[in-house]
């Protein structure tokens, strides 16, 4: 990095405009979120009007069994899909960074696609796939399956593998390969060198990837909506349905809970990243 000299800073009106723009962008980012939180405590039947402080929408949220049920589905989907995606994604990252093998380029492209594919396209893909797949299973084995928890998890794993592998890969690429070579020179088996040298170093990457996967899984509406079955809806799908039928103050409260969950995950992953940078500086 070269030092930023004084000649890169505009003067006069452009300078003022640039600063004003920066503040406006932040205002644009945060004002809606903050107002949503404020109005979730508003005692008024209309969602965007202040009618004094109340906690009753949170009470309604806590007593709504459908919300509770879909929340539980969401949490289970997120945890299971993250666990599987972390294992598969980490292995994929190791293979891509450390080895050459048959079909590597195709694999690389295949891993990249789920990241950039539009939600709707992936949702359509999974819907068609499961419909056909279940038909085939029924015809050949007499196995009757329906869409639900399983199909949601399978779909979430499919996009989470890619995100985990990208994060772990970045970490592996920044790692000093000579340490692994040293371990092998000192007669470590490949497993030992992975267990004691590689793994501790990529652990922050794995943790970051896992937090990202959790966030994405809890965020998804479109894909889950397509592959959900009766009785197994995730929270975002349920809330999305509620919003389309008409907004109620309870949705404000549910939204704030989802907001807190995702901000917590972001802050955690930033913290993981920070500890990783600190480790790099001392190590």
């Amino acid at each position: 990095m070269t030092a930023v000299g004084p000649s890169v800073e505009p003067r006069g009106l452009p300078r003022f405009a640039m600063r004003a723009n920066a503040w406006l962008v932040y205002l644009f980012f945060y004002a809606p979120i903050i107002l949503l939180v404020v109005f979730s405590f508003s005692d008024d039947r209309l969602v965007g009007r202040w009618g004094g402080f109340t906690m009753r929408w949170y009470g309604e949220f806590a007593n709504n069994s459908q919300v509770q049920q879909s929340l539980w589905v969401s949490v289970r989907v997120a945890v299971v899909s993250t666990l599987v995606a972390v294992v598969l994604g980490t292995l994929a990252a190791l293979a891509l960074v450390r080895f050459r093998f048959f079909g590597k380029k195709v694999f690389d492209a295949l891993l990249y696609l789920p990241v950039i594919i539009p939600d709707v396209t992936m949702a359509v893909m999974m819907l068609l796939f499961f419909t056909r797949f279940f038909d085939v299973l029924d015809d050949t084995f007499g196995l009757q399956l329906t869409k639900g928890f399983g199909s949601i998890v399978v779909s979430h794993i499919a996009f989470n593998i890619s995100f985990v592998s990208i994060v772990v890969r970045a970490r592996l690429e920044g790692m000093d390969e000579t340490l692994e070579e040293a371990a092998v020179d000192l007669y470590a088996t490949p497993w030992q060198s992975f267990r004691h040298v590689t793994f501790p170093q990529i652990l922050p990457g794995i943790a970051g990837g896992a937090l990202l996967a959790l966030t994405l899984s809890l965020d998804d509406v479109v894909i889950s909506q397509f592959v959900a079955g009766p009785g197994s809806t995730t929270l975002p799908v349920f809330v999305f349905g509620l919003i389309r039928r008409g907004v109620t103050p309870m949705i404000n409260a549910v939204s704030v809970v989802m907001l807190v969950a995702s901000v917590t995950l972001v802050l955690l992953s930033l913290l993981v990243q920070r500890s990783r940078d600190a480790a790099d500086e001392t190590g």
């Binding site: 293979a95 050459r100 093998f101 079909g103 590597k104 295949l110 893909m125 999974m126 068609l128 499919a158």
Partner: peptide
Amino acid sequence: ERRRRGFLLALPAYAYLLFFFALPLVAV
């Protein structure tokens, strides 16, 4: 041997994405 090991490491994710991503893509 290294190629074989690399392929085996990639295999679970590779197979998963072929079956649960590439195949659905073909289905569309």
